[in-house]
Design a protein around this nucleic acid. Structure first.
Lengths: 345, 345
DNA sequence: ACTCTTCACTGGACCGGTTAAGGGAGTGCG
DNA sequence: CGCACTCCCTTAACCGGTCCAGTGAAGAGT
């Protein structure tokens, strides 16, 4: 990339036009004391006339703040495009960033090593003032990385996964338990769960919680399948769960996201099974998608947008030296719709 | 945001450790001639030992390149989260950016004025080396802005909308015509289209093309509805189209995106209409979602990921001073699936 | 032996801001 | 009248790189 032909207007031009020094302009634009109202006005007027705004690059280099927040996402592009969670999360983050006029530096990475590399380069290169870390795994290398770099971050994930990092998290274990209890209360005794990627920390948490809940309720059947979160995988998993003899197959299935639940709905239809009479389906996340199907999908729903906003707020607090700690957000709540009912039998 | 406590290692430290000057380190890291192999190696070794990588901020300020590309998106967050197109597009863009180790600066904006402000601030502040402009409207202010700033951009949209800017676009008019012809060939004489936001340029193009195709084929009925691209709006539009008496209502509906088609499918089911026997549905974009419904959705499909990649490639070419011009990408092709068939009557 | 190149590298100005230290004018007070 | 104290504003040193003119030494040519 090469430079541009545009004649850039700099702080010097503004200073000259306002008849003051660079320093005065800087003071004015940072709302610092030490300038008379009159001068301040002259400076702002000059800046407006020249269409000048301070160069964030120079400002950053001069050692003050960095108004950019990093987010590296490590999931296959194919899955991402369909995963409503991400965009909603990002839009929640953005809503808070915008208030601080800072932006999101986004990068799709293929694996954890690449993410660590990207984060480190961003931080070292002063590209970002802090970062949002998502999709924690067991023994996540980003915990050590963060401590090594001393970079302000917010980790999205349960404290058991995120080490000592400041974290924002939803209580997945409780949510899973609630989902299973709800289905059991409807009378289901054979329940399956189509889970997400097995290497993700929150998947393990949900898997363990499901096992525990199934045990506690002494279910007659409890299945769990790991997928890659894609609709295809959800369809495959559903198909294989439902091909068993009627007496042996689950009467209710919990999905780890919306897309797989939609896919499950379609598989049930294709197999001639009615939802919810023959099989109940319960989605997760509850994007708009759940209200667009027929029947509508019951779901564990939470405010993903608000979650993103909370993450961003927490990050700003960490960046400005506030205290970190662990920030749980409200547990997803069950939103019953048309896809869950007592089993027919 | 305040600075960090970390002792930053700079080019000076590396230079000292390698026993050379700053300039030499700079040469080495930019792979420029003028250094012996031995010195080069010593420098890289020193850098590795100190864990140093050049500060992009300083590098940018010093006037070379800017390795960041901007993208401001101006649609309601609610819609975005569900719109598979965007994430797929972004992931396509990213795939090319990654090769150049540059990143995407993303911002969700509420309106065009805000976008113009953001783009201008980014450019003025040397935050970005170029930008991707999407969702063009008639008389789009970004055309003038770009020319005023002399900023390298790629406009995603038909040349008739993007003025003299370098553009990458799909031939929506031809695609709409093909869609209508296909449905007409199946025997449909009453066809509706549930379009996107009316203020978007590509919506107007599709609307005009639909009118023209309907006229050319002398259809007995042709409806068009504008929406905000959301599933809810798609459902509402579908419901109102299908409430007419059987002899007066459309027997086929074309949607401007996937989500609305999914919503339409569910509305048809809710109204007791069979798809495709009673009404045929045709989606647009063809994300994975179209294969997850029952019946599967026929769609006008194109390679959104590849489209994003092409946009990014074109932007790099513009940034490096290559020639701009107009870059059409392949027209969406019809992918028939289970949701389209000859009308029952 | 002398000049001319070439090669490898250095020194320092510069990018566009921030910031601490400093200076001059005006005012209050003894 | 002199002194201290504000209040405003300027000066200049950074921040961490890039880039270019320049230097010194080795090798080539005559």
């Amino acid at each position: 990339m090469t430079a541009t032909p545009t004649p850039r207007v700099t702080i010097k031009d503004v200073a000259a036009r306002a008849g003051v020094s660079k320093g005065a302009v800087s003071l004015a634009f940072n709302h610092k004391p030490g300038l008379s109202e009159a001068t301040r006005d002259r400076i702002f007027l000059a800046a407006r006339e020249l269409g000048w705004s301070p160069s964030l690059t120079a400002r950053t280099l001069a050692g003050s703040r960095v108004d950019v927040v990093g987010l590296a996402v490590c999931r296959p592009a194919r899955v991402l495009g369909l995963e409503p969670w991400y965009m909603e999360f990002v839009s929640g983050v953005e809503s808070v960033l915008a208030e601080h006029s800072s932006s999101l530096l986004l990068r799709l990475v293929r694996n954890m090593d690449e993410e660590v590399g990207v984060q480190e380069a961003w931080w070292r290169g002063r590209q970002i003032g802090g970062s949002i870390l998502v999709d924690f795994r067991a023994d996540d290398p980003r915990v050590a990385m963060t401590e090594r770099l001393g970079m302000p971050v917010v980790a999205v994930g349960h404290p058991s996964l995120t080490g000592g990092l400041t974290s924002v998290w939803t209580d997945d274990a409780t949510a899973v338990t609630e989902a299973v209890r709800y289905l059991a209360a409807l009378g289901h005794r054979r329940i399956a769960r189509v889970g997400g990627a097995a290497d993700l920390g929150h998947t393990s948490i949900r898997t363990a919680a499901f096992d525990e809940a199934a045990g506690a309720l002494a279910l007659a059947g409890a299945w769990q399948v790991a997928t890659d979160f894609s609709g295809d995988a959800g369809a495959r998993a559903t198909r294989s769960l439902l091909t068993a003899a009627p007496a042996d197959r689950p009467t209710a299935i919990v999905y780890d996201n919306d897309i797989m639940a939609v896919a499950g709905l379609s598989v049930a239809a294709e197999m001639g099974l009615r939802v919810p009479e023959d099989v109940s389906l319960l989605a997760w996340d509850d994007s708009q998608l759940c209200r667009l199907t027929h029947p509508t999908l019951s779901a564990m729903s939470h405010d993903v947008h608000g979650f993103g906003a909370e993450v961003a707020r927490t990050l700003f607090s960490v960046i400005t030296g506030g205290e970190g700690g662990s920030h749980p957000v409200p547990t997803p709540v069950l939103t019953p719709r048309g896809s869950t009912a007592p089993p027919k039998v």
